[in-house]
Design a binder for these strands. Structure first.
Lengths: 243, 243
DNA sequence: GTCTATAAACTGATAGAC
DNA sequence: GTCTATCAGTTTATAGAC
């Protein structure tokens, strides 16, 4: 009748012993996450099969279903593992800069440093993940895309506020466009280490984290501070084309 | 013996008549390209099956193999169809601006206009393609990625030269970094119409092409003109971290 | 928690009739 | 140039033994 249950109880003892003995019992979940992160980044999400992941992680095919429910569950876990700590870093950097400055508006460069530095740091520490993250920004699967960018909503609003205070004369619409461009510059840096070297004939590399952060801050601070275009007579909401 | 051949000859006559009569005989190739462009952009390349394309294009499954050799052949055809005309536009715009100016160095804004305007114009005319193009920049398949960016090599070098003449005091390495960021801002605009509206709470839309071009030029021109960071004593190749 | 075996569906490509 | 039929290989997910 309930012979299966008895057998299962027996097996649990055996399994506990095996777990005790083998070197990497619980780490299998982490191993799968590591391998999935790398393969998703190198070959794409859709083009990476669960089979390839479990094989490379020295796990069984069924392990993904067991630990993450499905392939999509694994994808979400891969992202959540790194993206939240990264945003916590950003916010706490901004917090500490604001604490230093007191009531005065924060210099643009400090805000940008708090925003850029953690992700550029991650580009060297977890290059696979940042490539994947960059690709998630233009991910065609709407559910997955939404799930990804929803992690950034709070950070975006916080930094938008800080930038608005540092640039009191910049209209909101103008600020939003400039933040859009700034995000593009940053995200492109996440993904495109390879083109960087190819286009530049080997002049540029993403090896010196502090250098990249400084270049990015210089470029974007200047872009944010760009003078407003002269308003055309008549329609203050419209801007004239170039020449 | 060669009865098949005779039958084939007979069929050719029938087919020619059918082709004459039906409204869209040769256009099937174009229809497949149109549908593939849209589906690749909306759902991704790997996630779009040849079956889905031919069904939506009202063509037979075998049509892709016949006209493009393989799915990869179709992908390359989708890209080549639009990317080359776009780059021709860029170069001829730059040509015409240089002809106007004569020997004097071109204003930064004119160079950027020649570079940005055609692709932003395409964002409204062929939004599907530009989304796809933006995703090709971080395409994981190396062959496909190379095939894509190779279309831009000539354009890149031409504009790099123009920018170097307009910014004679900017070291090459600095110029290359700034071009990298500028590319990021542009490409992010290709792909992310949706996030734009989401993040901005509906304030930003990609409906006024001239507005976007102007914003992009203003931001990037200021970034390119940013003063060089003070050189640290000792190592002139290294730059100090922020604060 | 791990494994094998297998289901059920889908993929790109092609041979051969018309 | 178009079509049907089919091959051979994938894919994710799961049932059931251990």
């Amino acid at each position: 009748m309930n012979r299966g249950r008895v057998l299962h109880a027996e097996w649990r003892v055996v399994h506990a012993m095996k777990t005790e003995l083998s070197g990497d019992p619980i780490r299998i979940k982490e191993r799968i996450l590591d391998v999935a992160e790398r393969l998703f980044a190198e070959n794409g999400i859709k083009e990476t099969s669960v089979r390839a992941i479990t094989a490379a992680a020295d796990a069984n095919l069924a392990a993904v279903s067991y630990h993450f429910g499905s392939k999509e569950g694994l994808i979400r876990a891969v992202i959540a593992r790194r993206v939240d700590p990264l945003n916590v870093e950003r916010l706490s950097l901004l917090d500490s800069y604001e604490a230093e400055t007191g009531d005065a508006a924060l210099p643009l460069e400090s805000i940008l440093h708090a925003f850029f530095a953690p992700s550029i740091h991650h580009c060297l520490q977890h290059p696979h993940f940042m490539r994947l993250a960059g690709r998630m920004v233009s991910e065609p699967d709407k559910e997955l895309h939404r799930a990804f960018i929803s992690h950034f909503e709070k950070v975006f609003l916080r930094f938008k506020g800080a930038l608005a205070r540092a640039l009191p004369n910049l209209p909101e619409k103008e600020l939003l466009w400039r933040m859009h461009f700034l995000l593009g510059a940053m995200i492109h840096t996440w993904t495109n280490h390879s083109d960087l070297e190819w286009f530049s004939g080997g002049v540029l590399t993403l090896t010196d984290e502090l250098e990249v952060i400084e270049k990015l801050i210089t470029f974007c601070a200047a872009g944010l501070r760009a003078p407003l275009p002269a308003q055309p007579r008549g329609d203050p909401n419209n801007t004239p084309p170039h020449r």
